[in-house]
């Protein structure tokens, strides 16, 4: 359920009394409603679902999680089984 992806706010304006913004996803942009993320500013990343930003991506938390993952040691045990699994040709 609930396909939502991160995009970057390019600009923001008020339309019909609601806050909207242009949000960039890869090589495209689309208008999204920013009314639920009053704290989000131009340049911020927001998670967008059916044309509505539902959260501002917490850049520090994202960075921290990623660093934790990155620091995780590659494992020494059972490398054979793992490599076999990863290198498996399903054909």
């Amino acid at each position: 359920m609930c396909l939502a992806i991160p995009g970057q706010i390019v600009d923001a304006q008020e339309i019909d009394g609601l806050r909207f913004g242009t949000v960039r996803f890869g090589g495209i942009t689309r208008q999204a409603c920013l009314d639920f993320v009053p704290e989000a500013q131009c340049g911020d990343y927001v998670i967008v679902h059916v044309g509505f930003a539902i959260s501002r991506v917490d850049a520090e938390e994202a960075q921290r999680t990623y660093q934790l993952l990155d620091q995780m040691e590659a494992l020494e045990e059972e490398p054979g089984a793992l490599e076999a699994e990863l290198g498996k040709d399903g054909g």
Binding site: I5, G7, R24, F25, G26, G27, V48
Partner: peptide, 24 residues
């Protein structure tokens, strides 16, 4: 016959990726 392709070898532009991610 069977065909096996490599996902990482298939070129997709950023514009196409963005639209596909957004629309599922």
């Amino acid at each position: 016959v069977g065909i096996t392709i490599e996902e990482s070898a298939i070129p997709v532009r950023e514009e196409v990726r963005g639209a596909c991610e957004m629309l599922g």
